[in-house]
Amino acid sequence: MKEQNIIEAKGLVHEYIRRDEEGNVEAIQTALDHVNLDVRPGQFIAILGHNGSGKSTLAKHINALLAPTEGTLYVDGKDASKEENVWDVRQSAGMVFQNPDNQIIASVVEEDVGFGPENIGVPTEEIWQRVEESLKSVGMLEYRTHSPNKLSGGQKQRVAIAGVMAMKPKCIVLDEPTAMLDPLGRKEVLKAVRALNKQAGVTIILITHYMEEVVNADYVFVMDEGKVVMKGTPRSIFSQVEELQEYRLSVPQITLLAHELKKSGLPIPDGILTRDELVEALLSVGQQ
C-alpha cells in the first residue's frame, strides 16, 4: 500500500484581492497558480524562489494561516481549508518564521517553548517534559532560563524551532529562517533542522533563497510567479544553471564554476554540488 502523503496539494490557487473603499475589486494578484505538491513523511523538502515568487504564501497555507481560493490541500490527511480542521492542521504542521524577534512571545526561553503546548491544553507535567526535550533537540537547554533578548539571531531561531517541536508536529515549515542571520547563525539553524529530520524523523519543508542550503534536501521545488517551475533532486536542479539564473536564483560559486568550465569544453559531469566533487573531476581531466 502506498504510504499516505503528509502534504498533498492539488491545483492550489491563492489570490490576494485588493479592494477600494467601497469594496469594489481594485486588483487581483495571483500568488499561487495551480500548485501541486506531494510530500512524504520524513522527507526533507526545499522550496526555492526569489522574493515574491509565492513561496511564503504556500507556506502559510500548509499551516492553515491562509485558505486556498481554489484547489485542495491535505495536511496529514486533513483538509486544511475546513474551519474545523484548523487547529489539528496547525498542530501537525508547525511553522518557523523569518524574523526571530517577532515570533518569540515570552520573556524567558523555557516559557516561550511552553507556549504552544499550553495552547493545546497539554497537562503541566508533560509541558515541562516536552520543553526539556525540545530545547535539548536544538541544543539550547542550557539557555532555558535566559531572556530571548540576550541571545544571538541563530539562538533565537533555534528557540523558535524548539517552540514548534514542543507541539510534537509531524512536519515543520521553515519560511526563510536564515534570511536575517549571519553565516554562523545560518549554520547553527541548518544543523539543528537537519538533526531534527534525521533523528526525530520530522518532515522538513525549508523555504529559502540560498541555494547552498538545499544541497542536502531530498527533493527541491523551484517557484516563480506562483508556479512550481522546476522540481527534482538537488543534483538535477543544480545542473540547470542557466534556468536557475532566469528565475533570479544565484547558483553556488562551485556549481557556477563547474558549469562555466564545462561550457569552455572541459569534460565535467553535470550538477556538481561540492568542492570535493569538482576537485576530483578536474584532477581526472588533468590526468588524461
Partner: peptide, 14 residues
Amino acid sequence: QVTYLMHELSENGL
C-alpha cells in the same frame, strides 16, 4: 569557496 578550491587543486599538483 573558490579560494579553497584553488588551494586544493594546487596541493594536488595542478
